[in-house]
Design a protein around this nucleic acid. Sequence first.
DNA 1: GATGAATGAGTCTTCATTCAT
DNA 2: CATGAATGAAGACTCATTCAT
Lengths: 241, 241, 241, 241
Amino acid sequence: MPMPQAEGAEPESAEARPSPLLTDPELPPSRSEDALSALSPKGLRTRQRLIDGARRAFEKSGSYADTRISDIVEETGCAYGTFYTYFDTKEQLFYELAVDVANEMYRENASRARAYGEDLVARIDSGLRQFLRSYREHAAILMIIDQAAALYPDFRGLRRRIRDVFVERNVANFERWSEDGWFDPAIDPVVAAHALVSMIDNFSYLWFVLGEPFEEEKALATLTRLWTNALAVPVTETVAD
Amino acid sequence: MPMPQAEGAEPESAEARPSPLLTDPELPPSRSEDALSALSPKGLRTRQRLIDGARRAFEKSGSYADTRISDIVEETGCAYGTFYTYFDTKEQLFYELAVDVANEMYRENASRARAYGEDLVARIDSGLRQFLRSYREHAAILMIIDQAAALYPDFRGLRRRIRDVFVERNVANFERWSEDGWFDPAIDPVVAAHALVSMIDNFSYLWFVLGEPFEEEKALATLTRLWTNALAVPVTETVAD
Amino acid sequence: MPMPQAEGAEPESAEARPSPLLTDPELPPSRSEDALSALSPKGLRTRQRLIDGARRAFEKSGSYADTRISDIVEETGCAYGTFYTYFDTKEQLFYELAVDVANEMYRENASRARAYGEDLVARIDSGLRQFLRSYREHAAILMIIDQAAALYPDFRGLRRRIRDVFVERNVANFERWSEDGWFDPAIDPVVAAHALVSMIDNFSYLWFVLGEPFEEEKALATLTRLWTNALAVPVTETVAD
Amino acid sequence: MPMPQAEGAEPESAEARPSPLLTDPELPPSRSEDALSALSPKGLRTRQRLIDGARRAFEKSGSYADTRISDIVEETGCAYGTFYTYFDTKEQLFYELAVDVANEMYRENASRARAYGEDLVARIDSGLRQFLRSYREHAAILMIIDQAAALYPDFRGLRRRIRDVFVERNVANFERWSEDGWFDPAIDPVVAAHALVSMIDNFSYLWFVLGEPFEEEKALATLTRLWTNALAVPVTETVAD
DNA sequence: GATGAATGAGTCTTCATTCAT
DNA sequence: CATGAATGAAGACTCATTCAT
């Protein structure tokens, strides 16, 4: 599952360049760009309606296996056969949907302009806040991506790559800090990035999927504190990017 | 998924008293003790063979949904109908299996003799080591418990209760430290316990299920450091229980 | 089971108005007209082929319980899944088949042109003849309707309603005769109608299903005589409708 | 289904001689007398307990097919295997039960002493009353015998033989009356006996199984009247056996 | 004799996918 | 392109009957 970055140093806007997730050459069942551009505008629209209908259908049922093609076409309002005009299998459709969701989370967590002058703690706090908001929004689909990851090896790659977007940002930051001598030398930046992403990711799962009740502000404050403590971030310091 | 405790002050051995997981009266689909004791010794043995066979079958297929009753009975070496002599559904059998696994992890992480005089960091380190060992051992089934939790709301309760065993130990420790004034007052003990359990739990998932490669000692050292940093544990101090 | 009427004064032809059996709003498991009209012509054709195939399959096996879905689709010449495109259960299909048969018998026994000027005895005789012919024709299915009625309370209502079509005609006649003073006052018209319908119905069962051998003309003559005697019909009288 | 006799001239008590139903050499799956007498007293008792338990189980479920061996042994309070110590198949057990019920009805309708001096109408009335009482008592099992008759040809023979007991008594009476010149020569005694038995049999079915509501005294009076009218019994006459 | 665990053939039912119109 | 009827492989579940103890 996707993950927060302590600092989202993203000079280019996410919209400006094609998302790395969708176009990754490793992703196997996704339609090639060629095949997509061969579709008429109407065809493209129908295709998108199917993806949107599928998202609603998956969210309703809460289960990859229990969402039938018939649920999807019913939700979309098109005929049974239309599904197979645009997708070869349920897996393929879900893959595209998952990539869409991954990109949405990516954008939600990356594209906002940072207020310069914020101190590191404030940024970490705002990054966590955004990630949790994002997770809550997409919890239903994220859960299903996890199901699919368990079911199909293909989805495990996607699952890891979704995480990695968030992990890598943190790794980049940690390494920069490391070079600057701010970073606890007993901590490996890559392991730490993974572990902290795990913390927030799984905490969100607990909160938004399993339904463990938490008080929002108390949870946020504690998570921020754990994160900054863990990294031994110099709390009083203000950083300019 | 289950989780490490920073300090497992368990005066009674876990073996001495029945695990609280199995006997929780809230667990819904589990056979009542009465129904179990109505079975003959041979019946009990066959029943256990089915649970064991199911575990192997689930581990082989790696998927809750894709493990068929026929796989289970084949692995067990009994007839199709025998399954239905002891269980009504795959869910019911799996529930018992999950409870078994939870109890095993509980014991593995509770029963080890503590070296008195160890300092806190050493204990946290050893707790994490044990948990990761335990997780690796049971990774295949833990993954499937997660799938089942995603699929069936009934299993979400079990999933949370498995975690809670580990969470509660940490909460108890944190609150004790808190009273003793060692604990960062900006950290809520319950949220922190959940968050740190999430960190290790999900990191284990990443490592042992998704297969992200980590170097063992580097990972362990970093996790311990993150954990102790996060809680602002007074590193140099040595604690006598 | 359906039954003869001593006198079927039916001014409108049975074909002119829809049979009351099919459209009875009380009939529970029957497809609503809406659902039917939602089907394409091809769909309706397949649906009817299934009903017809089911009739042959039921007639062959002679047993409701022993006629498998697979027998029905084999007889119909379609795939297993096609059955479930149109019906949820064997009961639902059978219900429609039973209603069809009931309507056929209704028509066979209602639509024949009455010879005006025939005397009452001749009419009773011709009514019985027609009913027995009809019963013999449908004996196999009628037997299975009885089985289904024994098996499922839902079918008992249908069973009674099929009878009632015949019973009610007789009740109407009996009450008219009663008003005219021709009728034995010791006889209750409703009980009598039911009893005489029972006589012919069950006699037909004995003859055509259980295979008790009877000589046709002797049986007919006796049944007519029993019927007219029972009601103390004034034999010599001629009635004009 | 069994049937009333207008007059039960049975000089010997039914208990005095073995019932003709049980010992009929045509009945195929019934245990031979030898096999029965080879059983110990305890064995015989267990066997009878199974038959009684089966009767309760069949009456509860109301269906031959839906009454499982497990229901029968549960109702009986014995082990699964015990059933097969005494019976080869469910069919065989039910056959014995059916024969038992048939004999009970036979006795209930035959063994009562007739009040001499009663007139014919009073006797017919009392015969019908007794039959309806009897049918009501055994309605549940009679219905299931019908189901079995539809399912297994073996049971059709039994079904007809049960009827025949009642039919034959009537035939005997009718022929006697015929010889005495009291009988309508247009009526065939055999057909008439079958038809009237059908009338009462099926009327009982309608009343007690399908649940058509009738007022007891009105129904009785009408049935008696139909029966006597049908045969043109000389109402005022008093007969001495 | 009694017991009840074990057996597995027989059916029902679902649903992803194909294909004729 | 769109349609939706047809397909049939896959899997769950039942229950009469057998058999070792």
